[in-house]
Design a protein around this nucleic acid. Structure first.
Lengths: 215, 215
DNA sequence: ACCTGAACACCGTTCAAGT
DNA sequence: ACCTGAACACCGTTCAAGT
């Protein structure tokens, strides 16, 4: 009678503390908005001492990095799920845009963390394939669109950077409550996306139903 | 002989501590990149006790708000300075874009703070006229461009939101070192701005020298 | 190999007391 | 009216000691 998962007092060794810490952190990130991220609170909630996490992460920013990478994995999944392989590039871009905005709205604190992790020092996280994966999706769609002729022929990398910056900026502004209708109108987000598409679509496909004029 | 500014030990009352705190904070924000903003360090540097700032700001976020507002004032000044009244709207937009990016690059920590102040709770800072002033500049240029015929006729508010999001996103990505040339190419920023302009310029003025193709 | 508890050097904030 | 100093409840991080 040394291990009964339900009634026993918890063992000295947690077993899989690393995973538990990460999951606890992600949970708290989703629950309490504006939570001041603190290692001690995570440890408390995971029912270990406040120094236990240091056996699994060298310091706080290491955990932050790990969470950010997981965030980028999830963003990529959300984007992939939004892509319809049968659709043409412009439709895909629109789907990507709404999926990106939706991800930010659903996980505001995680999203902020993703784009904030170690904002000070130079780190190699930005070069990680996982961090870059969502961005690569955008590139691929644009390149396909250029082959289809639906996307203006320009540097696809530049267009992808434009999309990425546009969506990131819009998501951040939305998360932070800066797109107040009183100042920015009721259709600001849709209209902003229209302008993004205006810049991407090749001459002919632009004027149609995709981007209605709203003068 | 009760007050000799140079040799006397400093008086019990600072005189204009509020202003001194703000200036010290701005200085430190510019000097040390990635500085963890702390009230106690500001007080130390201003040579007052760590509780003195509380006579002038109810709490830390109040100071943050004040600094953010000053940041928006300065951003507006930088943008205004970049505008050539003789230039047409597209040229103005390009000037605004580079001024915005330049401001972020020159004041990365202040810029981050501006768009981060009290990111948690709802606050009225986003409605402040000072916060909105730079955005209004963009609106005005776009409206003028629509009158000129150089800017596509769409909701100017939507176009302004698109510009704002695009520039904010690009600035943040640049500040955070996320636009690494290995992944994004050497001309990512210029190309991204080209795509932005592609979306804003009206049909005819687009193809010309403003936005060179770089396939 | 993994975890704890005390300890250290910090924070933000409050409050009686000083000038 | 403005400022100080001690005090409180927190952090992140380290390290000897426990299992």
């Amino acid at each position: 009678m040394t291990s009964d998962a339900s009634t026993e007092q918890k063992p000295y060794h947690h077993g899989d503390l690393r995973r538990a810490i990460i999951e606890t952190a992600l949970d708290m990130l989703q629950e309490q908005k504006g939570w001041q991220f603190t290692l001690r609170e995570i440890a408390r909630r995971a029912e270990v001492s406040h120094s236990a996490p240091y056996r699994h992460f060298p310091d706080k920013t290491a955990l932050l990095h790990e969470l950010a990478l997981i965030g980028f994995d999830r963003l990529r999944e959300a984007l992939v799920a939004a892509l319809d392989p049968a659709a043409d590039a412009p439709a895909c871009l629109q789907a990507l845009a709404y999926a990106h905005l939706g991800f930010g709205a659903a996980n505001p604190d995680l999203y902020r963390l993703m784009f904030n992790a170690d904002a000070g020092e130079p780190s190699d996280i930005h070069l990680d394939a996982r961090t870059q994966a969502p961005f690569r999706l955008v590139i691929e769609v644009l390149e396909r669109g250029q082959r289809e002729g639906t996307i203006r022929s320009r540097s696809a990398l530049g267009q992808a950077t434009a999309c990425w910056a546009h969506l990131h900026g819009l998501t951040m502004l939305a998360i932070d409550g800066r797109l107040v209708p009183e100042k920015v109108g009721d259709h600001a987000i849709e209209d902003a996306l229209t302008t993004l598409l205006d810049g991407l679509l090749s001459g002919e496909s632009a004027a149609s139903g995709r981007s209605p004029e709203r003068p």
